[in-house]
Amino acid sequence: MQQRLQGKIKSVSAEAGTVFTEDSSYLFTGFTHCTSFDLSNTDTSNVTNMSKMFNKCFNITEPIYNLKTIYMVV
Rank of each mutant, 00 (worst) to 15 (best):
residue 1 M to K: 10
residue 1 M to C: 11
residue 1 M to D: 12
residue 3 Q to H: 04
residue 3 Q to S: 09
residue 3 Q to C: 01
residue 5 L to N: 11
residue 5 L to Y: 12
residue 5 L to T: 02
residue 6 Q to Y: 02
residue 6 Q to L: 09
residue 6 Q to T: 06
residue 7 G to R: 15
residue 7 G to Y: 09
residue 8 K to T: 13
residue 10 K to Q: 12
residue 11 S to M: 07
residue 11 S to Q: 09
residue 12 V to P: 00
residue 12 V to I: 15
residue 13 S to A: 14
residue 13 S to F: 07
residue 14 A to S: 12
residue 14 A to G: 01
residue 14 A to H: 01
residue 14 A to C: 13
residue 15 E to R: 08
residue 15 E to L: 10
residue 16 A to F: 03
residue 16 A to S: 15
residue 17 G to L: 07
residue 17 G to I: 05
residue 17 G to W: 01
residue 19 V to L: 10
residue 22 E to L: 03
residue 24 S to M: 07
residue 24 S to D: 05
residue 24 S to Q: 10
residue 24 S to R: 06
residue 24 S to E: 08
residue 24 S to N: 12
residue 25 S to I: 11
residue 25 S to Q: 12
residue 27 L to G: 00
residue 27 L to N: 01
residue 28 F to K: 00
residue 28 F to N: 00
residue 28 F to D: 01
residue 29 T to N: 14
residue 30 G to T: 02
residue 30 G to L: 00
residue 30 G to V: 03
residue 31 F to M: 14
residue 31 F to I: 07
residue 31 F to N: 04
residue 32 T to M: 04
residue 32 T to L: 02
residue 32 T to E: 06
residue 32 T to F: 00
residue 34 C to D: 02
residue 36 S to Q: 05
residue 36 S to L: 00
residue 36 S to C: 00
residue 37 F to Q: 01
residue 38 D to W: 02
residue 38 D to Y: 06
residue 38 D to V: 01
residue 39 L to Q: 06
residue 39 L to S: 10
residue 40 S to M: 06
residue 42 T to W: 00
residue 43 D to A: 02
residue 44 T to W: 05
residue 44 T to A: 15
residue 44 T to S: 15
residue 45 S to N: 09
residue 45 S to T: 13
residue 45 S to H: 05
residue 46 N to I: 10
residue 47 V to M: 05
residue 48 T to L: 13
residue 48 T to F: 06
residue 49 N to D: 15
residue 50 M to F: 15
residue 50 M to E: 03
residue 51 S to L: 03
residue 52 K to L: 13
residue 53 M to H: 10
residue 53 M to K: 07
residue 53 M to S: 11
residue 53 M to D: 04
residue 54 F to K: 06
residue 55 N to M: 11
residue 56 K to Q: 12
residue 56 K to M: 08
residue 57 C to E: 06
residue 57 C to G: 09
residue 57 C to I: 05
residue 57 C to K: 04
residue 58 F to S: 14
residue 58 F to G: 05
residue 59 N to E: 15
residue 59 N to F: 08
residue 60 I to A: 12
residue 60 I to S: 04
residue 60 I to P: 03
residue 61 T to L: 07
residue 61 T to I: 11
residue 61 T to C: 06
residue 62 E to N: 11
residue 63 P to W: 07
residue 63 P to H: 08
residue 64 I to D: 02
residue 65 Y to N: 14
residue 65 Y to C: 07
residue 65 Y to Q: 09
residue 65 Y to V: 04
residue 66 N to S: 14
residue 66 N to R: 12
residue 67 L to N: 06
residue 69 T to S: 10
residue 69 T to F: 10
residue 69 T to I: 15
residue 70 I to R: 12
residue 70 I to K: 14
residue 70 I to L: 11
residue 71 Y to P: 00
residue 72 M to C: 01
residue 72 M to L: 10
residue 72 M to I: 03
residue 73 V to Q: 14
residue 73 V to P: 00
residue 74 V to T: 14
residue 74 V to M: 13
